[in-house]
Amino acid sequence: MNKETAKNVVVYIGQRVSLTAIALVVLSFMTFTLGQLVPGDAAVVAAGPNAGNERIAELRVEMGLDLPIHKQYAIYLSKLSRGDLGKSWFTHQPIWEDIKARLPASAELVFLAMLLNVLISVPLGVLAATRFDSKTDGAIRLIVMAGAGIPIFWLGLILQHYVAGEAGWFPIAGRVSFEFRDFSGSTGFLLIDSAAQGEWRIFWDALNHLFLPAITLATLFIAVVTRTTRSTVLRTLQEDYVTLARSKGISEYQVVVRHALRNALIPTITIFGMQVGWMLSTTILVEEIFSRPGIGKYAVKAITQSDIHGVVGVVLVMGVIFLITNLIVDIVHLFLNPRHRESVQGK
């Protein structure tokens, strides 16, 4: 990368960051509107069933509900910028604290599911493409079809019942065994904290608890990426540069990995980026089934209790994570695609 390109890359990243910031404002507007649209008077709910009209009016002023809508939004934004997502109407806890305590459990789940996704879907897609129209290809297509068609909640219940319950290979539910329930560390990530403290039994225990939920969460996403990898690799294998790479007398493995797959990865990375966000929202199903104390389970609870601030908080946090992963993907693209690096010039 020469100096000129390096400068362009910095400018480009700056642009992406500011675009992400704009998207965040739009997101906040949407979550704010969501809070406004929900029927019911926040002050009535907050005051409780026995409060009198006076108390409700008092609370309305206290909560800023008597102000014009744009002022309410301004207050909302300034609170957001300080990390204040409001208080739960039910627990009266700051929502950010609730989410912060639950986010690591979900992040661990999404991370492991994503890891399985990358490690399984890409090799499977490449295998299907290089064995195009063979029995292997047919078998992979069948598995993919099944994987994409299985409802996540059903798969989770089946795995929980048979693999964890009947066979007893994995724990049925929860994040960690009862005996380790008091373990805590500085990051909140069980895997990181236990590894950092050398508590390998806890690490192993937490990993075991993660396994089935991660499989459940990953299956649909693996199916999708296997399919897209197969078709993009099939396409790149037809390219002249792959034929010419073969004509150099290098091994077929090198031809496929260095040229066909390397080029096919560019669109695949984009899909991976979006999947992080989708997976996060799918934790709502998986964490409920496996009783994992993450933000998905928290969202379910907030929804059933009509805790609008809780729901809005989860939506906002998931949205932020989605935007940030896509920002990272944009930057990764600069390293994967030299043409892209060049074309950011002069914009």
Binding site: Y241, R258, I266
Partner: peptide
């Protein structure tokens, strides 16, 4: 090969 625009791997 015929087409020099397709004959080279764009990312190498």
């Amino acid at each position: 090969l015929q087409d020099p625009f397709a004959a080279l791997d764009p990312v190498k």
